[in-house]
Design a protein around this nucleic acid. Structure first.
Lengths: 360, 360
DNA sequence: CACTTTTGTTGGATCGATTCAAATTTTTGC
DNA sequence: GCAAAAATTTGAATCGATCCAACAAAAGTG
């Protein structure tokens, strides 16, 4: 219970110890930042004074203003902060970012906020050299807010096609085609799509009309990829139900209820995220529908949990950590250019996909 | 490939737009920080000037120096940054910290560094209002470094008994007793302990002598708890092998080799972390030793993975997220006091512990 | 209309350091 | 012993804002 702060004395400043040691602040500063250029005797005297007065060392707040560089990169999202540690996708991404930061000794500042207003403030006042934006929900807004700061930033996931923002993401169309082709080649012809959001805050079956009006290009692209490939295999995509979820349990459950209440339930589900896919697997298991015997499922993302679930998830894997690493390096070695980068995805075939049940 | 930074023009400062708008910098500042006190006409003029000159808004670097408060808390460790996202224990802890930070709108700055020197620098220059220290390996050093900053900080895990540092941890002795009692009550009498580090960089069987000289009090306390309870049940603790691991696979494997090569292998393993326990379960499974039929295992920590592994892990659960929340609040509502807080642990009985095999 | 209030604006001081050209001291060379 | 060269030290300027006491202008009051 000892009190640390002795009364309310102002913290000791560099100027204070300079005076105490009888040197100019210039010299005092040098003692800490370039000790080799000051005479040993003086150096010791200043250090002694610092010690005696309980000086905490040059305050980074002061240094910062002069130096200009923070040596930290901000990672922002509209989700709560715990998202960075709870969400599997985010975690792998952060691992990649961490790696790049570790390599250069940079720090990471996590930025987020419950409400819109606080988020704006937190972005405006974040002490960072640049931002990496997790554009999940509310991506466009986040980009706007960040653009105001006029610092380098990279958007993760090529949500919009705004060519004025740097972004790193994957080829969603190609990835989706991989998934669809895999299922078609296994013999499936009756499909359903459990999709991510096309616009904010809506769930339910979506019409072609609504797809065209999609706010989130990533979702639209994945659907386009699915449909292109399905068509190639002669599937009438107009008959394929597409249920828009919020990437969570309630909406995915609702989607499954809907899909399996249809006169011709699917033998294969194309899920736009591993999260959705894994929720679906559980839902199906609870209803005695065997995966992949009765229904096959292919996810999207390639989060580590997918390999662990029962049955292990077939999925379109993004190079998540690599995206993170690249994003971080783009900020760290910023060269003033705006660039959009698309990485390749890879189909990882595991146990959740197999041939369709033979018709009885 | 468009260039963002038009040449190398210095960024626009508040003073620049003040001049452009023909007002004093005081007024210009007010336009951004307290717009309601400046006359509308003037406000619009200044805003227009800002817009026209591409002003990014008041630079937080400048504001910071004046304001003094960063509104962010630093979380430091000697591990690489990715530790925060990869390690299950750290993740849950960070979730708790995040929650507390979200509630007050504070940010989180992750601080770490590969080598000692860079770590010191990073701690010295972290822009934060206080620190939470993950004292795993190298805890004492981390505490020293942080103390220099003269900012509030809280050490996680009551490693040392240094009463001059604030800390939050669990009652290791009581927790360990819980684990030991559970196994004794199931009928076990032949034990082995897979321990965390007593000192840095050593592995192998430890002697009572070495236990006494432990650098890490947490480890010592857990062992003390185990032994106290074992004694109570009439077990001769002198005969209980204690193998010091580095909480990783190689050293845990080595420990298991050693323990199971003993003339009287144990029927129950007391593992000082869930990590060690889960590594042990895998090792045993690979050797056809059934858990809990042949050998029971009790872990320590209560990480979420423990519930998922096969068999699910019996463990002494720490209120990890709660520790995180409290630590964060200690920094956020710092009251100038140094306090050591000890939270209770809870025995979570799952599938990895059962009665010992009946003697043949 | 002179006289207080109220409302807005100003400009200097401050936050805590770093930097650098100029001034000073110490060394070196002869 | 003295000039030139080298090594230190100085102090003003700067980084980019916020704060606040003092001042000015407009509005209200008797």
């Amino acid at each position: 219970m000892a009190s640390l702060t002795a009364g309310n004395t102002r913290p000791v400043r560099l100027a204070d110890i300079a005076k105490a040691a009888g040197v100019s602040h210039g010299t005092a500063s040098n003692v800490f930042s370039r000790p080799e250029i000051v005479r040993e005797e003086v150096r010791e005297r200043v250090k002694a004074a610092a010690e005696a007065m309980g000086y905490a060392g040059p305050d980074p707040k002061g240094r910062l203003l002069r130096a200009g560089k923070v040596n930290a990169i901000g990672v922002a999202t509209t989700e709560p902060l715990s998202y960075f540690f709870d969400d599997p996708f985010a975690r792998v991404m952060m691992s990649g970012i961490s790696e790049a930061c570790d390599a250069t000794g940079a720090g990471i500042a996590l930025v987020s906020a419950g409400n819109e207003e606080k988020l704006a403030w937190n972005i405006q006042s974040a002490l960072v050299d640049g931002f990496i934006l997790f554009c999940i929900e509310g991506g466009p807004r986040l980009v706007e807010l960040t653009r105001e700061r006029k610092l380098p930033f990279v958007a993760l996931e090529l949500g919009s096609q705004d060519d004025t923002v740097s972004a790193i993401g994957v080829d969603n169309v190609a990835g989706a085609r991989l998934a669809a082709r895999h299922l078609c080649e296994l013999g499936h012809r009756r499909f359903a799509v459990l999709s991510l959001a096309f616009v904010d805050g809506r769930t339910g079956l979506v019409s072609a009309e609504q797809v065209r009006a999609a706010l989130y290009a990533g979702t639209r692209d994945r659907l386009a990829g699915y449909f292109e490939e399905l068509s190639r295999f002669g599937v009438d995509t107009a008959g394929v139900p597409v249920y828009e979820t919020e990437n969570d349990e309630p909406s995915t459950w609702a989607g499954l209820e809907t899909i399996f209440a249809l006169p011709e339930p699917p033998t294969a589900i194309l899920a736009m995220s591993d999260r959705i896919a894994m929720i679906a697997i559980e839902w199906l298991a609870a209803r005695g529908i065997a995966v992949p015997r009765d229904v096959s499922i292919v996810g999207f993302d390639g989060v580590p949990d997918g390999a662990l679930c029962e049955p292990a998830l077939t999925t379109v894997a993004q190079p998540i950590a690599e995206i993170g690493r690249r994003a971080a390096r783009r900020i760290l070695d910023f060269d003033g250019t705006v660039r959009r980068e698309t990485l390749d995805v890879e189909l990882v075939v595991r146990a959740s996909s197999g041939p369709p049940p033979t018709r009885v």
